[in-house]
Computed example of a mutant assay.
Amino acid sequence: MNKFDNENGQEKINEKKQIIKNIINLKKEKNAIILAHNYQPREIQEIADFIGDSLELCIIAEKTDADIIVFCGVDFMAETAKILNPAKKVLLPEIMDTECPMAHQLPPEIIIEAKKENPDAKVVIYVNTLASAKALADATCTSANADKVVNLFDEKTILFGPDNNLAYFVEKRSDKTIIPIPKGGHCYVHKMYTLEDVKKVKAEYPNSELLIHPESSPEVQDVADHIMSTGGMVKHVLNSPVDTFIIGTECDMISRLNIELEKVGKSKKLVPLRADAICNPMKHITLEKIETCLINEKYEVNLDEEIIKKAKVAIDKMLSLNK
């Protein structure tokens, strides 16, 4: 590395430090908070006020007294924050390419048609859906509480979407008949995982525990040591006596786990089940975009009032489990 490269590298470090300083000042000036999902890059997680999974961030969004919520995640997450805080300004630092592909697999018309075919069924949909879909649900859920939400209802038949693998996970843990909607609904990241992946990494780390997200395929769930949400993974890794974990979810979950381990002075071996398990829409938010977002107060999330009202009923049903 020559002198020019050293100087250029230091300049970039100084620029990054200045951007972070500006973000901190803007947050204070505007009474704003930054929420970041576990799949955000580490540098975004490090400047967030709160990091979490979908359920944890829903709870925080509902309780915040901030005037502005900057959501570092994908589109449905920012919409959920707006539903829970209709009077607050909710900002998504980037609107291009931050759509969750799975959320868009369940448009309202599919739910409407399924309800016609199953009029006695309750509708439970993953929080990973758009607000227009949530407005048609009896309850929302996350991967952390899906089985508990389904069991809130007396009805034996549940329309559940959009993730078919999470539907499999739920049906195994309830006495309900789960009808997945749409057929084939999935997360493209978790669908990557195969039994061959498990065999390969387990052979390299035979004394490890395999932690699998319930959006993964049934055959991969069935060989996991633990199936859990990302929030569940944080608690388990921090408290388990095991030293090595294979992480079967989006790669930046390892960033979150390392941050939490560093806070308590622990060090553990964290191995991705696949190094290419990357949610591309999560990576389009940058420090520069957060700074610009706070300066210009855009891109603001706006939703129809009637959709907010109906969707909030479904979300509140889920959140009642935590009250």
Rank of each mutant, 00 (worst) to 15 (best):
R274H: 09
N296R: 14
I181T: 03
M77S: 04
G248A: 08
E11R: 15
K317I: 04
C279R: 04
E260T: 00
F76E: 09
V90F: 01
P93R: 07
E297A: 11
L303K: 04
E99C: 10
L106R: 11
E15D: 03
K12N: 13
D53Q: 08
K156I: 02
S240K: 07
E79F: 08
K323V: 09
S320M: 05
F153C: 12
T142C: 05
L106H: 09
M233D: 02
S229Q: 05
G184P: 07
A103G: 14
N6D: 15
E288V: 05
P93D: 11
K268S: 12
E56P: 01
S255V: 01
I308W: 13
P107H: 07
N302R: 14
V234S: 06
K312C: 03
E29G: 02
P241S: 13
T286V: 14
Y193E: 04
K310D: 15
N85H: 13
M77W: 04
I158C: 02
S217Q: 12
E99I: 14
Y193G: 07
E171L: 13
S132M: 06
L152G: 05
D163E: 07
K30D: 08
V301H: 03
D120K: 08
H236S: 01
P206C: 00
A144T: 02
S174K: 11
I20H: 13
M233S: 07
E79S: 10
P272V: 13
L210W: 06
I24D: 10
T177C: 07
V123I: 04
N8T: 15
F245W: 08
S132C: 11
Y168H: 13
H226E: 06
P107F: 10
K12H: 10
L35V: 02
Q105L: 14
K12S: 12
A314F: 12
K309S: 13
E11W: 06
M318V: 01
A139W: 10
V313W: 01
K269Y: 02
G185P: 03
L91P: 12
V149Y: 06
A311H: 06
V223I: 11
N296K: 15
Q105F: 07
S255K: 00
I83G: 09
K115N: 12
Y188L: 09
E288I: 07
I95S: 14
L152Y: 06
C279E: 03
N2I: 10
E155R: 00
P206E: 01
L261I: 04
F76G: 14
V127Y: 01
L35C: 06
N207V: 02
G9Q: 13
Y193H: 07
N25M: 09
H213L: 05
